[in-house]
Amino acid sequence: MLGYEFMQRAFWAGGLIGIIGPLLGVYLMLRRQVLMADTLSHVSLAGVALGSVLQLNPALSGFAVAVAGGLVIEQLRRSYRTYSELPVAIIMTTGLALAVVLMSLKQNLSKSFSSYLFGSIVAVSDTQLRLIAVVAAVGLAYFIVLRRPLYSLTFDEETASISGVRTGLLSFSFAVLTGMTVAAAMPVVGVLLVSALIVLPASLALRIASGFTAAILIAVSAGLLGVFSGLTASYYINTPPGGTIALILLLFLLAAIAAQRLIRLKRRHSKYRNPLHSGKSVQEI
């Protein structure tokens, strides 16, 4: 399988997004912005359509519009503090509406759009791979260097602000990074599944992690494992890679939930079974 160059590129692209997506996902979930990835993927789709209509590189225009969308959402979030999900809903509707209208202006766009909608990781070009590598490098550096202020910001914005964290700048830079990651992830898993790669590993991690660092490590491990096993499975059973990756991530999450419940049940059982074994039953008492 890895003898084919297209599969090597697919594994590189998937591996890079499999690291940065789940990492971003942990912070997005904790900041109650879980729908942001989904929204920006729709906004990015509008950017792709705009690029096609204006005869620009669709990948780059999608990238630029996703970053701009992230900034607009952050600005609106500050205006609607009480209803922080509202700006996300507004931008999602706008992005999808724009994409549909712009697509209708060019009749021959539907085929190239299907690659953005469902992903075409096995057809990742060198340019796309370079873009993904740059975004992943920038994202990793961002999360490593700013891990302390990001932790404070994510826990509570007000206390972070008072203790000297420049919360405005940090929030805006985070929105830019989200836009960049979503736009870079699009050719890997497609618009419809981009949020799956960001949200599912993070959901799993937040459910089972005992601490913050553990949550980050679990999310990244699950993301990488999901991407690699999804790609391998899609190669051998000939299924769409994006959908396969998302379904495998979903299986991981369901398995983790089931395992966690079983462990809890077992612990409870072992704790309360002993008195009955050594003493009298309720009826006897």
């Binding site: 942990v26 904790l30 826990f155 509570d156 005992s210 601490g211 949550a215």
Partner: peptide, 8 residues
């Protein structure tokens, strides 16, 4: 406010 925060 932030009950689900995954921190020790």
């Amino acid at each position: 406010f932030n009950t689900g925060f995954p921190s020790s």
